[in-house]
Design a protein around this nucleic acid. Structure first.
Lengths: 218, 218
DNA sequence: ATTTTTCGAGCGAGCGCTCGCTTTATAGAC
DNA sequence: GTCTATAAAGCGAGCGCTCGCTCGAAAAAT
């Protein structure tokens, strides 16, 4: 969490008015934690900054030393999510054959959303009904993920590992399944499905649908 | 739209204070139209009743003759959606073999969400961050859909049409693909994917993943 | 003439955000 | 170590404004 706060501080150094980095990082971490908890409970829009003040233990004035508007607070979170996704999944290992590269991507996405669950649920749920910039950022990040899937499918068609008629459509169908892991997290928790079990099921489902010649070992 | 308004009137006859049915139906239809348009643009919570007053052409006071609170307005929409889903898809034709019954369900769901797109996007996007009753209603409706899929898969396993290891998991993966049609409607519109094309792609994808012995004709 | 429907100014509450002030941390002089 | 000057960080009442909602009166329908 503090590592993520440090990233935010680096990216928004101009709007954060607190000068000592270690203080700013610690407080930002607490602000993010409180914001995610509150916003995922009642929605970002319904979360008042007085609520956030109470939850985080900082005064109204102190909060505004870390962001200059509620929208900036929103962009801090969305920016962090898309940045982390790009870093963790943006360059699939080209040396792996497509089926294993697909598993790498799916497993990585599941692991990442598991580790940063409140961040991803926030980005998915809140971004829709908010200002242009915020929504564009969320849409771009989703398209990026879909593009990563499509690229692997196209490669797999070329190598003969997959037999996919419409690469874009297949990627468009795989992505919502992948997202379901964090969008409907409580459903899988209730059914006691582990991250590994979900990844295996999704991978098996996708491989069969993609006309893969043989299944890939876990 | 007026047919849907008539249903709402029947279900909320106690809160609607306007007595003449034809007046109430017409106004309710306009209120629903305006609400869906506004809420899908800026979010239900951000939509003020003054906005709704302007958009619908009714005064603040007139609006409150049709619902007693903003939350009731929300429940009117969510209730209509789950009611319509249950009526249209609640009883799959038992005489069809499982693969064709699956196609019936998927095609029906796509057609229904296509015909009532703003209603479904509203239910999906807004319900999350709202009062208990509203959220429970949305969750129950989604579980119902997933249950309908699972029942068909189980039947297909019994007849030998499908070879599905985990029926619940397979249904859990198919549903988000199905929902993607209306949740990400603009994506498919941009790519010029028709409802029929989407249904075919989804059906083909699912059948392959379910280990079906042969494909089903459209 | 009476009921039915619509109207919109107005209410109190709560919103995002500001700003004059207090408290806390830091650093040089002795 | 102690004192003190200065900067850094935090505070919270209060601003202007919009919100959901009400209600007495006007308008329309019967």
């Amino acid at each position: 969490m503090e590592a993520l706060a440090a990233r935010i501080l680096a990216r928004h150094s101009e709007t954060v008015r607190v000068k000592k980095a270690h203080v700013a990082t610690m407080r930002l971490a607490r602000i993010m934690e409180s914001t995610l908890a509150l916003a995922n409970r009642v929605g970002f829009h319904s979360m008042s900054l007085r609520d956030l003040s109470t939850e985080s233990g900082l005064s109204m004035g102190a909060l505004y030393a870390y962001f200059d508007s509620k929208e900036t607070l929103l962009l801090m979170i969305l920016g962090t999510v898309s940045e982390v996704v790009e870093e963790a999944l943006g360059e699939p290992p080209a040396d792996l054959p497509p089926p294993e590269r697909l598993r790498w991507l799916l497993a990585g996405h599941v692991a990442l959303t598991e580790a940063m669950l409140p961040w991803f649920t926030f980005a998915y749920m809140q971004a829709k009904s908010f200002p242009r910039e915020a929504r564009d950022m969320a849409v771009a990040s989703e398209q990026r993920t879909e593009g990563l899937i499509a690229a692997i499918l196209a490669d797999g068609n070329a190598t003969g590992d997959f037999r996919v008629a419409d690469v874009e459509m297949a990627a468009a169908l795989i992505k919502p399944m992948l997202q379901d892991w964090y969008v409907k997290r409580s459903k899988y928790r209730r059914r006691k499905v582990s991250a590994a079990a979900f990844t295996d099921a999704l991978m098996g489902f996708a491989m069969a649908a993609l006309g893969a010649r043989a299944s890939v070992p876990a």
